[in-house]
């Protein structure tokens, strides 16, 4: 069943796009990540022009994360206060990231720098998460108490001023490191063209000691707003948001996200961290393999004129 995409200017199999929306929506709801790092490459693989894929995916992420966030919200697993403080840093980080992005592009070899930093970052985060969650799972198997939240242990940033109590997260910390995390995630997200959920969640879990489920819920809440903003920005700047593609992805996405959110709340926190670690690691491996193996076609052709 084919349908013509008015902005991408090509016919696509609508059931395939719908299926992609469901699959990525499930992952999005389960782990609280936007799923852009999975969806964008898949759409490009299907033949959607990269500019249209990058611009249309955020609206799918917004819809999926909204429906996921509603589910987490009902179970009081969204810390809106923490989300808002993160967002203030995130907006500054995104602006800085967009600026650095254009600087790097002018210098050439942007793709290589992005891919390399992607691999390094994801491999490190993925490995740390897998190792930590295996230790936690092992302890659970031995019948020991989980020791992720160590009451009384204070990091250096607990001495900083501007302290807030974030109730849902059960933490009492300064707004400064929270804003810094938001800034870092926003910066890297803009540089790599991703929402940054899978950077934010580990940061909240391991640095801020926020419970896993609240990290996921808060990340969904944050992703909703950044992706809505990204949709409008892409429409104004690049004119490459395809509403037909976006709507198809969205409907698939919300269906997948609902079941994903339920699945995510059903499994144990350390199992969820383990699975997310595997996912992050797999993405790093895929990007790495692309760089290391000889491509079947050495040449690529791009049109320098934007479609329109």
């Amino acid at each position: 069943m084919s349908i013509y995409l008015p902005i991408a200017e090509l016919p696509v199999n609508i059931l395939l796009i719908f299926g992609l929306g469901i699959a990525v929506g499930f992952i999005s709801g389960m782990f609280g990540v936007g799923g852009g790092f999975l969806m964008t490459p898949m759409l490009i693989l299907v033949g959607i022009p990269p500019s249209v894929a990058v611009a249309s995916v955020p609206s799918h992420m917004a819809a999926s994360s909204l429906t996921g966030a509603i589910s987490y919200w009902r179970n009081r697993l969204v810390d809106s206060g923490l989300g808002l403080v993160l967002m203030s840093g995130g907006l500054l980080g995104t602006a800085a990231g967009v600026w650095i992005f254009s600087l790097l592009r002018r210098a050439g070899q942007l793709d290589l720098i992005i891919n390399l930093s992607y691999i390094v970052l994801l491999t490190v985060i993925g490995t740390l998460m897998i190792a930590e969650s295996i230790r936690a799972l092992w302890r659970a198997l031995q019948g020991q108490q989980p020791v992720l939240r160590r009451p009384g242990t204070h990091s250096w940033f607990h001495g900083l001023p501007l302290k807030f109590r974030f109730r849902q997260s059960r933490i009492y910390v300064s707004a400064i490191p929270v804003t810094a995390i938001g800034f870092g995630v926003g910066l890297l997200g803009a540089l790599m063209g991703i929402g940054g959920g899978f950077l934010l969640i580990p940061a909240l879990i391991y640095l801020m000691r926020v419970p896993t489920a609240v990290s996921v819920g808060t990340s969904l809440f944050l992703t909703l707003f950044t992706m809505l903003a990204a949709t409008v920005l892409h429409a104004v700047e690049n004119r490459s948001v395809d509403v037909v593609l976006a709507l198809t992805l969205m409907i698939g996405g919300v269906i997948g996200a609902q079941s994903g959110a339920r699945a995510g709340q059903a499994v144990k926190a350390e199992q969820l961290r383990f699975l997310l670690g595997i996912l992050v690691f797999a993405v790093a491996a895929r990007v790495g393999l692309d760089l290391l193996t000889k491509p079947a076609e050495l040449f690529s052709v791009i049109s320098t004129e934007a479609g329109g």
């Binding site: 008015p6 902005i7 609206s59 799918h60 917004a62 819809a63 999926s64 994360s65 909204l66 429906t67 509603i70 589910s71 909703l224 992706m227 809505l228 949709t231 409008v232 920005l233 892409h234 429409a235 104004v236 004119r239 490459s240 948001v241 509403v243 976006a246 709507l247 969205m250 409907i251 919300v254 269906i255 996200a257 609902q258 329109g308």
Partner: peptide
């Protein structure tokens, strides 16, 4: 195609609203 080209902001806000509506309805 014409809206995306000529009414960029309205078009972008429209798609964002669509995402919001779809997400809320599903919820």
């Amino acid at each position: 195609a014409q809206s995306a080209r000529e009414a960029r902001l309205d078009y972008g806000l429209g798609v964002a609203l669509l995402a919001f509506v779809v997400g809320t309805l599903a919820g």
